[in-house]
Amino acid sequence: MEGRFWTLVFVIFAAAALAACAVAPAYQLWFPGSGEALSTIGARIDHLFYVILVVIAVVFVGVNVALGYVLWRGAKQPSEVKAVYSHGNQTLEVVWTVIPGVILLALALYQMDVWASFRMREFYPQDMRTIAEVTARQFEWRIRYAAPDKTLEADPHPDDVYTVNDLRVPVNRPVAISLRTEDVQHAFFVPELRIKQDALPGKRIPVWFEVTRPGTYDLVCAELCGWGHYKMKGRLVALSEEDYAAWLKQAFEDQFDDGVGEGEKSD
C-alpha cells in the first residue's frame, strides 16, 4: 500500500513538471516578451531549442513511465515473491548506449550551423554594418555612434554621438556592435533577441544581429560585475531605417547643443 503511495509521488512529480511546462506559456513563463524571438539568429536558436525540447520530452516521459512502472510493479508484488535474479543484459546495454549516442551526436551536429553564423567571422553576413561601440562599465552601458553619414572608427572622434543605456539600431538589416568593457567583465544580453555575449576586459568583440521587428527591448547585464550588477538596465530600441536616421540626426544636434537658438531644450 505504502509503496503505491510513494510510486504515485514520483509519478505525480513527473506529470506536474510536464504540466508546468505545458501551461507556462499561458502565464508568461516561457520565452520572454511575446514569446517569439525578434532577431533572425534568435528565431534559429528557438528552433533548436524546440528540437531539443521534443527529444528531451520524449526521453523524460519514457524514463518516468519506466520508473513508474518498475516502482508500481515492485509495490504491488507480494513480499514473499523473490526478486528476479539478473545481472543485466548485454544486448540492452548496447542498444541503450548506441541509440542515445547517435541521437546526441546528431543533435550536436545540427547545432553547428547556427553557432558558426552567430560567432564565426567567416560566416558573418556580407552587408553587416557596425553601428555602435558599446562600452560596459560599472554599472551602465555607454554607447558611441558615428556622426550621421560617417562610419564608426575604433578610436573616438570629436563628432561622435554618445548615449547611455540606450542602444538604437535599424531593423531588418544585420547590424553589429563592437562590445568592450572599461573595467570588469560584463555580458550584453537582450532576452527578446536571444543575444548574449560577454564583454571581456582588454578585448573588443563584435556581436551581430538582425532585429526583425521595431520596438523597445530590455538590455541586461548577465555576468556578475559587482554590487550594482542589477542596476545595469538599458534598452535596445529597434527603429525603421528612416526613423533611425532621423533619431541619429536629432541626437547629433542635441549633443552639440550650445544652449542658444531654439532656447534651452528641456531634454
Binding site: 551602465e140 547611455v164 538599458g234 534598452r235 531634454d267
Partner: peptide, 22 residues
Amino acid sequence: RDDLARTIRDGIPGTYMPSFLL
C-alpha cells in the same frame, strides 16, 4: 529640478552614479 533629472537620467560618467534612463 531639470538638473537633477538630467543627472539621474544620464548618470555621472566616471563615477558610480548610474544612469536611470528607464
